[in-house]
Simulated assay, not measured.
Amino acid sequence: MALTVKIDRFGFKGREAFIDPHATLSVVNSIGTLVEASQDTPIARDREETSEGTYVVFDRSVHVQTPVSELEEDVAIFLEFKHYKPKKKKTSTKAWCFFTLSELDPSLDQQRIAMEIYAKPTDLSRRRVGLLSVKKLYAHVECLLRTE
């Protein structure tokens, strides 16, 4: 069984102008070690303003390389929102989120998840977690489980 994560959008408060925003997907075990190489998405497609806040729209899919049957149940899928900072001439992580495989229902082929967005730095061990904002902000993804 293979897992594809379609990154729909990240929500942020205010009208932030991110330059070349993209996401990095990482598969991490319970002690915070990468299970496979991290993957970057192409640059986000669009931005949209709603009553809940500003969203950076990705509409991009990332395929987890390791078959689900070979992953431990407590494995987490991390998503980091990154953007370019011209003054510092580097790419910076703005925020991150994660979900575990145990949160997915294996009987469903397709399921949507809304994850809370946490402030940097990214903690792969999942111990130091702090919300990015007081306002309810979410990252929206769609998980596709398919048998091959």
Rank of each mutant, 00 (worst) to 15 (best):
T4N: 04
V5L: 07
V5Q: 08
V5D: 07
I7P: 00
E16M: 08
E16K: 12
D20S: 08
A23W: 00
T24F: 02
V27I: 15
V27M: 09
V28I: 15
S30M: 04
I31N: 10
G32Q: 06
G32I: 14
G32T: 11
G32H: 08
T33K: 15
V35T: 10
E36N: 12
A37C: 05
A37Y: 05
Q39P: 02
Q39I: 15
D40G: 01
T41W: 00
T41C: 01
P42L: 11
I43C: 02
E49S: 14
T50W: 08
T50A: 11
T54S: 14
Y55I: 05
V57N: 00
F58N: 00
F58C: 01
D59M: 05
R60A: 00
V62S: 07
H63A: 13
V64N: 08
T66S: 13
T66Q: 13
V68Y: 11
V68F: 12
V68G: 01
V68P: 02
S69G: 07
L71P: 10
L71N: 09
D74R: 05
D74C: 02
D74V: 01
V75F: 04
V75G: 02
I77P: 04
I77F: 05
F78V: 04
F78G: 03
L79H: 02
L79K: 03
K82Y: 01
H83A: 00
H83W: 01
Y84D: 03
K85T: 11
K90I: 10
T91G: 02
T91Q: 05
A95L: 04
W96Y: 15
F98C: 04
F98K: 04
S102M: 06
E103M: 14
L104P: 04
L108M: 12
L108K: 15
Q110C: 07
Q110E: 09
M115P: 03
I117F: 09
T122S: 10
S125W: 04
R126F: 10
R126S: 06
R127S: 11
R128Y: 10
R128S: 15
L131T: 09
S133Q: 09
V134F: 03
K135V: 13
K136R: 14
Y138T: 14
H140S: 11
E142N: 12
L145D: 02
T147Q: 11
T147S: 11
E148A: 09
